[in-house]
């Protein structure tokens, strides 16, 4: 029996479509509906109530939560982009052997085989009051007392994000950069361009897809994170995702739903903007 190609494709893609429909799209619809419903401490009533939304949209707290998370996002994006771009440039244009290039990339990936929560704990012996960094600074006579802003602070949150996400930027940019034909660089060199001119006018514009993919990963990770920021800030810094987690823990479903939909809209707007720069499917298939 022969099935038409179109039907064969449908059958092959059906299990995946089923998972995404039942586990992503239907829940998305339900969250949206619930955000408009009335509730008390334990239940959701099937009655329209706009309070969750007016609270979420008008509370000054919402604005300050988003300002906090966007501050972290922008700093993380800036650092991981600068480091990721220059290291990709190093791996693609300075390291000549493919073996070394793959080896260095693999070396950067191996620490991520250690599960996430453990990576968070690992900062204590380094940055804590009795940690190695404080001891080294005191031994060197640079500080007299242990610095307390090294851990459980904005600094440690940004440090943890950069630690986790630099590779998310480095990988896609390296992928894009490796596809730049060497002849282009050679031509620029022959025309008398200096190294920084080649980077600015040739390499940077041609890596835009990689940068966009890296940025998508980072936006998703930072805006959605409620766990790392809780651990690394010692519970002192709150973000929109944190606020949702807190309300979920208290079974306050409709307000949590309203805040979730708001966060979702913001993430989708940012990502859609970036998807205009890059066609992920084409980028991967080349």
């Amino acid at each position: 029996m022969r099935v038409p190609p179109r039907v064969a494709s449908w059958l092959q893609v059906a299990p995946m479509a089923l998972v995404f429909t039942t586990m992503v799209l239907i829940p998305l619809g339900i969250i949206t509906v619930v955000s408009f419903l009335d509730y008390d401490f334990a239940r959701v009533f099937p009655e329209i109530y706009l309070g969750s939304w007016t609270d979420a949209l008008t509370s000054p707290l919402t604005l300050s939560l988003y300002l906090t998370v966007f501050k972290f996002l922008l700093i993380t994006l800036a650092i991981t982009f600068v480091v990721g771009f220059w290291l990709a440039y190093f791996l693609v244009f300075h390291v000549e052997s493919t073996g070394w290039r793959m080896g260095l990339l693999a070396a950067a990936a191996i620490p991520f085989w250690t599960p996430g929560p453990i990576r968070m704990v690992s900062w204590v012996p380094l940055l804590g009051k009795e940690g190695l960094v404080n001891k080294a600074l005191m031994n060197a006579g640079i500080t007299e007392a242990p610095l307390d802003w090294l851990l459980y602070s904005e600094f440690s949150v940004i440090l943890a994000y950069c630690n986790l996400l630099t590779l998310a930027m480095l990988g896609p940019i390296t992928h894009s950069m490796a596809k730049i034909p060497r002849s282009l660089i050679q031509a620029a060199q022959d025309a008398g361009a200096r190294e920084w001119q080649i980077v600015r006018d040739v390499v940077l514009p041609l890596c835009k897809p990689g940068i966009a993919i890296g940025a998508i990963f980072i936006i998703t990770a930072v805006l959605g994170d409620f766990f790392m920021i809780k651990i690394m800030s010692g519970g002192q810094i709150n973000t929109p995702a944190n606020a949702i987690a807190t309300e979920l823990a208290a079974f306050q479903y409709p307000p949590a739903a309203a805040k979730s939909v708001m966060l979702l809209v913001i993430v989708v707007v940012l990502i859609t903007g970036l998807l205009r720069v890059v066609d992920i499917r084409k980028e991967l298939q080349r």
Partner: peptide, 15 residues
């Protein structure tokens, strides 16, 4: 698939 990947995880779990 892209939506499933980029939507905040807490949103999907809650949903």
């Amino acid at each position: 698939a892209i939506a499933s990947m980029v939507l905040p995880s807490i949103f999907i779990g809650f949903g």
